[in-house]
Amino acid sequence: MAQINRHDNRLGLWGWLGGGRWGIERYAYILHRLTGLGVLFYFLMHIVVTSLRAFGVYLWIEGGVFHQPIFRVGEFLVYAAFAYHAFNGIRLVLVELGFAVGAPIEPVYPYKTSLDVQRPLLIVMMILAAIFLAVGGYEAIGLAR
């Protein structure tokens, strides 16, 4: 039989971001990835920078390189990323261990899926993340001093 050409139609990285009509969990998934990568990048640098205190080098205190406003803003972004990643992560742990997706049901149109079952959990977690973020923001812009 002759070789038949095939066109590889995998969506690639665009498939992570798009490819279909997006649902809220799709946004949650991609944001979880991005915040995870962001926090990891910060964390790896953080280990090195804070380890320098063993030599008495404190780069993040007043007068240090990382005390400049740009890094303060960056630190708050890391705080925000953590707030999202942490609370969404707790939702994911509950979902992936099958606690928040519901038992199998008889599919009757219009279909109700596990996405609907875990949606209240998603909303609660996002509210908690927002509160955590608001408290940090309140402190960061200096209102607390």
């Binding site: 799709r26 998934y29 979880h32 994911l92 992936e96 997706v101 279909y111």
Partner: peptide, 25 residues
């Protein structure tokens, strides 16, 4: 990672995302 698109797309209401989470559990 529970993006949930499979369950949204399924034309028969099979809810694959639910099946996979129970499988992982």
């Amino acid at each position: 990672h529970y993006a949930g698109e499979c369950s949204r797309a399924c034309p028969k209401g099979v809810d694959p995302a639910k099946a996979i989470q129970h499988l992982k559990r």
